[in-house]
């Protein structure tokens, strides 16, 4: 590219990036303002004084550490669940031939099309029967049973692995399980990481799950706790913004450091099928 093209690209990017980050900057700067300042000059980006105590106050106004530890349990558990179960299901859909496979796959994709508000009551009753009501298990266990989106992604990826690989392994005397565990899984690490990250972010942000299944405050994860915080402190914008920033920051860091792998994972997750 010549310098003219290059500077056009930079100018465009800078312009768009400013627009995209402005709301976030407003959130950040608002979280550091005093309540009086937020009301007086909501649009001034640099606060007059840096009110770090807003963060301390937000953390103490809710059982923050409890929420955070719940969220972490949830994230780790559900990432594990998704990676294990979806890879197995995807393997079955992608590499094994069995009666009704394509039909069942269509149904699976179909389940994505139905809004959760109607499916939640039967789901709720089902998990309640199993005795998981008001436990984090109610949110983690289902991920061990797979979800349509991740299965779809992984299936697409597995299908890009040449069939000869499996053939060679079969000749070497590996069982179907062996092929899955020893051959396919190690080849799919970037794709698994992608699915894992998607699930991590989803679990981090999940709001409807806790809403349905948890009723004890000391089991709430951050996303749900945040919503409750928002409704109880709706007149204290500085605290709301501080809480929202606290909530977002870990995901920002996670993405920032994992983006290389993440992008590689998506790229190789044969979406081009």
């Amino acid at each position: 590219m010549n310098w003219l093209q290059k500077s056009t690209v930079y100018a465009l990017l800078l312009f768009l990036a400013t627009i995209y980050s402005l709301p976030l900057l407003v959130m950040l700067s608002g979280s550091l303002k005093s309540p009086a300042e937020i009301q007086a000059s909501p649009n001034q980006l640099i606060p007059d004084g840096w009110h770090w105590e807003n963060y301390a106050e937000a953390i103490t106004a809710m059982p923050f550490w409890r929420y955070l530890s719940n969220t972490l349990v949830l994230c780790v558990g559900s990432v594990l669940g998704t990676v294990i179960s979806c890879s197995m299901a995807a393997y079955a859909f992608a590499r094994l031939k069995w009666w009704g496979r394509d039909w069942l796959f269509a149904v699976l994709i179909g389940t994505m099309l139905l809004p959760w508000h109607v499916t939640m009551i039967p789901r709720f009753l089902l998990l309640r029967e199993v005795g998981l009501y008001n436990t984090l298990g109610a949110l983690i266990l289902p991920t061990f049973l797979g979800d349509a989106f991740s299965i779809f992604l992984l299936r697409q990826f597995f299908r890009t692995i040449p069939e000869e690989v499996s053939e060679a392994a079969r000749i070497d005397g590996l069982s179907e399980w062996g092929i899955y565990w020893r051959i396919i899984m190690p080849m799919s690490v970037p794709a698994l990481i992608t699915v894992g990250l998607f699930q991590f972010v989803a679990a981090w942000n999940d709001f409807s799950g806790p809403l349905l299944f948890l009723s004890n405050q000391d089991k709430f994860p951050l996303a749900y706790g945040l919503e409750q915080f928002v409704s109880s402190y709706s007149d204290q914008t500085h605290l709301l913004l501080a809480a929202a920033t606290l909530f977002t920051l870990p995901i920002v860091l996670l993405f920032f450091f994992a983006q290389k792998t993440f992008l590689k994972g998506i790229a190789t997750t044969g979406l081009k099928d």
Binding site: L226, A244, V252
Partner: peptide, 15 residues
């Protein structure tokens, strides 16, 4: 840049 553009999508919907 990538992070800046991606970021808003992970902000919780409520916030």
């Amino acid at each position: 840049f990538r992070t800046l553009f991606y970021l808003p999508s992970v902000i919780p919907v409520v916030a």
